[in-house]
């Protein structure tokens, strides 16, 4: 199996505070990996480091063998690394379809004059993303809501739209930040099925942060456990369940 994402010895300091230290992680092509840890362990910081929102203080980071250091988030997305946000960040005043259309941004190559004068290439590509956008929404059961304003969607649908939007950028690696947060058990189950399905369908690698243990243990092939900014354990779900370090981190010293 070939390595897709490789993070080596990454540290991030905020002032004197070490948010993440000596963080190592590899994700292979096609893998579905979980990242868990108590609140404040630095999981979202890790995502922000991967996606260029923060630059690491030290360490290296590469996608498909090419370094991601010093790149803007938009360049990293263009390289094939897409993400969702823990605190949903939809374009809330826009329609559901427009949310997805924005994500097709990097796949459109007509220029400003072609757009301003509505040349053939503009018409053709716009028609194309309109169609593929609606198809994508169908997969996420949002096709009826294509013309609704995103902020009016129910919470679960907003989470699904975030994933749909990230997929529309055509990533190789998808980072999901607590995709099941705020969902009921039934919605969570549907989400699990959907994640497994899109991963096969789009030949994706996925890294997900999640608090819902049944979800993580149920679908992840490997799991990393983060505490106080450091990886304290990694392995297949069964190993992680039994790992004393992990149990201590989650349940406290006495356990």
């Amino acid at each position: 199996m070939s390595i897709l994402l490789e993070a080596k010895n990454i540290s991030k300091l905020f002032g004197g505070l070490k948010a993440v230290s000596n963080f190592n992680m590899t994700i292979n092509k096609g893998e579905l990996v979980g990242l868990i840890g108590p609140n404040g362990a630095g999981k979202t910081t890790a995502f922000n480091l991967f996606t260029g929102v923060y630059q690491p203080t030290s360490g290296t980071l590469s996608l498909d063998g090419r370094s991601l250091l010093g790149m803007k988030p938009s360049q990293i997305t263009q390289r094939g690394l897409a993400r969702t946000f823990q605190n949903i960040r939809l374009f809330s005043e826009l329609s559901v379809l427009d949310n997805v259309k924005i994500a097709y941004h990097t796949h459109l190559n007509y220029n400003l004059l072609e757009a301003a004068f509505r040349f053939g290439r503009y018409i053709k590509q716009e028609r194309q993303i309109e169609e593929t956008g609606r198809e994508l929404l169908k997969i996420f059961k949002l096709e009826d809501k294509a013309d609704e304003i995103a902020k009016n969607l129910p919470y679960g649908a907003q989470r699904r739209l975030e994933i749909a939007r990230a997929l529309a950028t055509h990533p190789q690696l998808l980072l999901l930040d607590e995709p099941a947060a705020g969902m009921n058990p039934q919605e969570t189950n549907e989400l699990m099925d959907m994640i497994s399905w899109i991963r096969k369908e789009y030949a994706l690698s996925i890294l997900l942060i999640e608090h819902d243990m049944s979800l993580v243990m149920g679908i992840c092939e490997r799991i990393y456990v983060l505490e106080y900014g450091s990886i304290i354990a990694q392995g297949v779900p069964d190993e992680i369940k039994k790992n004393p370090e992990v149990i201590r981190a989650y349940l406290g010293e006495e356990a």
């Binding site: 929102v53 938009s74 960040r89 809330s92 924005i102 941004h105 757009a115 716009e126 990230a166």
Partner: peptide, 27 residues
Amino acid sequence: NYVNSSFGRACVAIRENEIAAEAMGVN
């Protein structure tokens, strides 16, 4: 026509949420 193209959508995305716009590949 500008605002009804990918150029305009990029603008509106920036207005709505700059961090998400970057995450969608919008420079």
